[in-house]
């Protein structure tokens, strides 16, 4: 009888060792992170008032920033984004083409599938204020300091 009690007790202990591993620490969709740098020195440079729009959707409202993060649509191919710099009464808009290959990747039982953007490329169509763009991390999957640098 005592033996059985001990067996049942050890079983209870075993059961308490099982824990739920339901926590997912990964974002389902990762925003693309852009860092603005001075074209001459390469040092981080702040844009006084930046607006980023995609068609009619405002991705980044009028904010001062040297670094921005925003979500990209899940369609493959090319997407034209308008980057507007407001400097006092002066407004300059450049169109940047973002192209990538979206896919779903299975991470874990807790996270399930996440959206990953492969082969990220950024090309400025116009050069009114942006000189060039440089992609540093071509896969938008993890949060990083910067996926790309925009030089102006």
């Amino acid at each position: 009888m005592k033996k059985l009690l001990w067996l049942l007790l050890s079983f209870l202990v075993l059961q308490s060792a099982c824990e739920r591993d339901d926590l997912c620490l990964h974002k389902r969709v990762t925003p693309v992170v852009l860092r603005f740098r001075d074209d001459a020195t390469g040092a981080p440079r702040r844009v006084d008032s930046l607006t980023v729009t995609y068609d009619t959707l405002t991705l980044v409202p009028l904010v001062p920033a040297d670094s921005v993060a925003f979500y990209l649509p899940p369609e493959p191919g090319e997407h034209q984004l308008a980057f507007t710099w407001k400097n006092g009464s002066l407004r300059q808009t450049d169109t940047l083409v973002f192209s990538y290959r979206p896919r779903e990747e299975f991470l874990s039982k807790a996270c399930g599938f996440v959206l990953v953007l492969d082969s990220l490329q950024i090309e400025p169509l116009t050069h009114r204020w942006i000189r060039h763009a440089e992609v540093v991390v071509p896969v938008v999957k993890e949060d990083t300091l910067a996926h790309a640098n925009i030089y102006f």
Partner: peptide
């Protein structure tokens, strides 16, 4: 089925494959 959810206010980009 695979379903990807975008957070607000980009919910309209959420899709189901």
């Amino acid at each position: 089925q695979i379903h990807i959810d975008y957070p607000a206010p980009y919910d309209h980009w959420s899709y189901t494959r």
